[in-house]
Design a protein around this nucleic acid. Structure first.
Lengths: 139, 139
DNA sequence: GTCCTTGCAAAGCGTTTGCACAGAA
DNA sequence: TTCTGTGCAAACGCTTTGCAAGGAC
């Protein structure tokens, strides 16, 4: 059930400014794990005075409130995604594209992890995506 | 069965220089996913003329030959580990320490991933480590 | 008035690149 | 000689910080 951004802000006790709403909607509409740069370049068209600093600020705020997740890719850049559905990731080692895939189920021996309090998980399968497999078969 | 660095180099057809051997041994003896900085500072004591560039160069070489893995943490730094045993990771969200844990078993619906060629996986459990749990209980 | 949001400019820092020197083959 | 390993210095690029201006309340 999708929540309105206004309601989300109300719950978290943060003000729903236009900039924040735009960034939230962008992440909601672009499930492609965009970088700060991508978010900035796409939004500055409408929000002419937008700065990257603000994008960083807003994302930081969202992360603090668990609205957004950071993903660390193999490159030196962070990618962002809305934190509204549990899922796993698939990283293509050819084109470096990061796909959302249905959540992978984990099983492990809890006895070997006694003392550890497990609260979350990050799973990334790595391989070659369908598009790159096609390219490979052509060449 | 541990292999000698000389043998490994012979197999990979790279020359076993002292610098390379030292960096390899360091990673072998420090299973703490060190950063380039940590490797550099610990090794420069003996290898007085060592530079970070060389550490980067050697690690790059090792990664190309699958001797070493890179781990992208939540901070803006890469961490390195020897690629000699399959295992999963546990990241403590309090102290940010990254632990090696026994490999977690994954299960997923292959039908939903048709077209994807899966060759590897990265699993990180996230939570609070035993040390930080103790601290928490004290305070 | 105070508090919060925004954003310019600069700094910070891990990493990469260019290039040159020295030793090995 | 050529090739390889090493390392200084500079550049690079993403991110963070300092601080100030404008708006909300």
């Amino acid at each position: 059930m999708k929540q309105d951004f206004q309601e989300i802000c109300k719950k978290l006790n943060i003000s729903p400014s236009i900039t924040r709403k735009q960034i939230y909607n962008y992440l909601d509409g672009h499930r492609t794990h965009p970088t700060v740069d991508e978010i900035y370049h796409d939004l500055v068209v409408d929000l002419h005075t937008l700065s990257k600093t603000t994008v960083y600020n807003v994302l930081k705020l969202f992360i603090q409130h668990n609205l957004v997740n950071v993903i660390n890719t193999t490159e030196n850049e962070k990618r962002y995604e809305i934190n509204d559905m549990k899922h796993s990731h698939f990283l293509c080692k050819i084109c470096n594209k990061l796909y959302d895939i249905p959540q992978v189920t984990l099983s492990y021996d809890k006895n070997k992890l006694s003392g550890f309090s497990i609260e979350g998980e990050q799973v990334t399968l790595i391989g070659i995506c369908p598009d790159c497999m096609k390219q490979k078969n052509i060449n």
